[in-house]
Amino acid sequence: MTGTVKSVIETYNKRGARERNFDSLNNDFGWKHLPCSFLNENTVYMILTAFCMNFFSYFIRAVSSVFTSLSPTSRVKKFVFHFTAVCAKWTRTARSWWLNLYTGMPYDKLSFG
Rank of each mutant, 00 (worst) to 15 (best):
Y107P: 14
T93P: 00
K32E: 02
N13W: 00
V86Y: 10
F22N: 10
V86F: 07
L110P: 04
T43V: 05
V44A: 01
P72H: 05
Y45M: 07
T84A: 08
P35L: 01
P106A: 00
E41V: 02
T2V: 05
W31K: 07
S65V: 15
P35K: 04
W90M: 10
I60D: 03
F67S: 04
F29M: 06
C87P: 12
V63W: 03
I47H: 01
L34P: 11
T103S: 12
N42W: 02
F81Y: 08
T84C: 10
L34M: 09
S69F: 03
S71P: 06
C52V: 09
D108N: 12
G30M: 07
A88H: 15
N40M: 08
F79M: 09
T49C: 03
I47W: 00
F67M: 11
C87H: 13
T68G: 08
D108M: 12
F83I: 12
K77P: 11
R61T: 06
F112M: 10
D28T: 06
S65E: 14
N21S: 11
N100F: 03
F29D: 01
K6L: 05
L48M: 12
T91S: 07
N54H: 06
F55K: 10
F56I: 10
R92T: 12
F29K: 07
T11A: 05
F29A: 00
W31F: 12
S74W: 05
G16I: 04
S65A: 11
I9N: 04
R95Y: 01
S74Q: 12
C87M: 12
W31H: 09
V86A: 06
N26G: 11
V8T: 08
M105G: 02
W31S: 01
C36H: 13
F51V: 15
P35F: 00
P35C: 00
G104Y: 02
P72V: 08
A94S: 13
W97L: 10
